[in-house]
Design a protein around this nucleic acid. Structure first.
Lengths: 226, 226
DNA sequence: AGGTGTGAATTATTTCACAGCG
DNA sequence: CGCTGTGAAATAATTCACACCT
């Protein structure tokens, strides 16, 4: 596999969600058009996305839902469980640890760390918050596949460096700062303040937008994702 | 202003964060190259992004930090306060309500709602969680600029419809489902499970080209959103 | 020299449109 | 027929490269 766009992978994730939904509803097959409508894209986009990985449909019929879901799960690497460590046991870390969407998809939270002594030792469901000072040692003993970083911006890069040195290959970052990782490590960042700022931008520029030019409705304002 | 890409707006948000940091550090000016390095892009990208809105720099010198920050704040609509209502008082809603990054940028949480009677009436810092059944009425009495939706996927679209009918023009969605809004309403979705799935994809395909690059955040591996 | 602003070139992503198969 | 799979065309986003200012 060589050059799959990030946007394509994100859409596969959306398709999978809908396939599971339709499967639960008892449907057997689905067309690219139906899938597109559910996911907020176009049928051509759906077919193109899938075509990067193979031919999973039947002409004239559509896609077998169970089969396609299985294929996408394989593509996304969701057939196995991934072990996740959460670094930062504040509110965001706690919310993530309890997020049902993670467990549903096979992401298993196996450890939590925090530098704040008042948080260390607290129980979180089945696990105990550990001291972030021990991060390197604990990771060495038991390396997770993925680390979720939910700490303030200030110490974030230093923690990333520790994670990377320990051998973590994938990091999901919630700290509001750009971070740097070496090649071979995948970093994905989510910044909620930035999302709000794009809304602020849209609100501030409302009205200047599509009035005059009669914008194509499909394109207009809504950003769908999932 | 017509056709500014979403990616450009997101980067402005990043630049702003660094400008404020450098300003606090006492710097007066900064070059597109330095800003790019901090933000994980290229200098050409920085200049291009800014050029959509005007010429803010001085040739041979760079950008005045205070001035550029002010310009970007104006572009993003951050000169005023935005009133935010949080719908869904679960862990994610609570984490968002307390997120310092929101208040820092002028996003003021003015109300919280939940349908669960056991949550209604709880105090959250200064505010009290209200009954989601009264959402329409309460919004009619006091309309926020932005709604943050932190509820399960199931009821999400119905709530969006209520929000839109009440006149909310911008929604930040954390429910793991695509939502539809009419033209004129801006919807932005964040899906944390999906972010983890792109990491899963990267891990599953590690070794093949495209797993590691890390540094030019905008490009190869790391996606900055924050 | 040093660094911005920007058209032109390049690269990435989406959409079209249609051949081909069940 | 209906609907997939996919090259080719169209758009969008990024990078180049250089004229031009200080």
């Amino acid at each position: 596999m060589k050059p799959i766009a990030d946007s394509t992978v994100r859409r596969l994730s959306i398709y999978l969600r809908f396939l599971e939904e339709r499967l639960a509803a008892g449907d057997e097959t689905i067309s690219s058009d139906a899938l597109a409508r559910l996911g907020g894209t176009t049928s051509a986009q759906v077919r193109k996305d899938l075509s990067f990985f193979g031919s999973f449909g039947t002409r004239g019929l559509g896609y077998g839902i169970a089969d396609l879901a299985e294929r996408i799960r394989a593509i996304l690497g969701l057939e196995r469980e991934w072990r996740v460590a959460i670094v930062g046991a504040g509110k965001i870390g706690a919310a993530l640890a309890g997020y049902p969407g993670f467990a549903q998809r096979g992401f298993h939270v196996v450890a939590a760390f925090d530098a704040d002594p008042s948080k260390v030792g607290k129980r979180w469901g089945g696990l105990v918050v550990r001291d972030a000072n021990r991060l390197a040692a604990d990771l060495a003993a038991d390396l997770p596949d993925i680390a979720v970083l939910a700490v303030p911006a200030e110490g974030a890069q230093a923690l990333v460096d520790v994670l990377v040195a320990a051998g973590v290959r994938a990091i999901l970052n919630f700290a509001p700062t750009p971070l740097h990782v070496p090649a071979g490590v995948t970093l994905k960042s989510v910044n909620m303040a930035m999302e709000l700022e794009t809304l602020s931008y849209a609100l501030a520029h409302a009205g200047a937008k599509g009035s005059g030019a009669g914008q194509p409705a499909a394109k207009s304002r809504s950003t769908r994702r999932a």
